[in-house]
């Protein structure tokens, strides 16, 4: 196998929570520049997979390579510094900060002044702030948030908060962006906008891993899909292949009974 354009390689990872095996020997490779989706019934282990990729906890066994580098024993913030951004299934925006400030926090990775310099507000801090502001404005514009820039995030509708969370993750300039159910709780129109946004993000060259239950969205925009059930991969392929895969249909129908 040639590996040059795999940005992420997952090699047989497992994760146990006490007695519960949330992920069992999961392997998949994500090609750079594509939208790679992970689907599966509730409790299949999708969020756990994202948490493993971002090193929120270590895998029980197996290894994860990002751009050929092992993620073993990396802290979540180090993973972010390497270029993996993410959003959360249970939204985690900074409610008491404005939209702009939320995104500015995301620019943390591209600045380096510490306590002493910030206390004195040295000219270098001033310059850095200017760069951060420009960067933030660009991200806000990209996600159509500029009109809401100075509002407190806590007071905004859910759909907008979700966009803020993505904007914030984009500000870290990720190479890989993990979205955990970005359209859950959104209405039809918002979902459509979000689909557009995700495509736009991919078109800037960022690889996207998308976890979703919304099949229309998944089938509409994914380049490749992996299906999990009870922590195991049961299928992988294009939208068409997945839709016609009897195992997948089984997994979903079984759950709905």
């Amino acid at each position: 196998m040639s590996r040059p354009n795999y940005i992420l390689e997952i090699n047989s990872i497992s994760k146990n929570f006490g007695g519960l095996q949330a992920i069992t020997r999961l392997s998949f490779n994500v090609e750079e520049g594509l939208i790679f989706s992970i689907i599966g019934p509730n409790g299949a282990g999708k969020t756990t997979a994202i948490n493993l990729i971002t090193s929120m906890y270590p895998p029980t066994s197996g290894e994860i390579l990002f751009e050929g580098q092992k993620l073993f024993r990396k802290k979540p913030y180090q993973v972010a510094l390497m270029g993996i951004g993410r959003t959360f299934q249970n939204i985690q925006v900074f409610q008491k900060m404005s939209v702009r400030e939320n995104v500015m926090v995301g620019c943390h990775t591209q600045s380096d002044s510490g306590f002493l310099r910030c206390l004195m507000h040295t000219p270098s801090v001033w310059k850095e702030e200017k760069v951060i502001r420009q960067k933030t404005d660009a991200v806000l514009k990209f996600l159509d948030l500029d009109s809401k820039a100075d509002m407190l995030v806590g007071g905004l509708p859910y759909g907008v908060q979700k966009r803020v969370e993505i904007a914030r993750a984009l500000a870290i300039e990720p190479k890989l962006l993990l979205l955990d159910e970005p359209v859950a709780g959104l209405n039809l129109q918002e979902t459509e906008e979000m689909a557009g946004t995700i495509l736009k993000i991919r078109d800037t060259g960022i690889t996207v891993i998308l976890v979703e239950h919304d099949m229309n969205l998944i089938m509409g925009i994914s380049n490749r899909i992996t299906v999990l059930d009870y922590g195991k991969k049961i299928a992988e392929g294009s939208a068409k292949e997945i839709q016609n895969n009897p195992k997948v249909i089984d997994a979903y129908l079984g759950k709905e009974l």
Partner: peptide, 12 residues
């Protein structure tokens, strides 16, 4: 605001 989110943005 959120420690996990801060971490995910590269903040130690």
């Amino acid at each position: 605001g959120s420690e996990v989110a801060a971490n995910s943005l590269g903040i130690n």
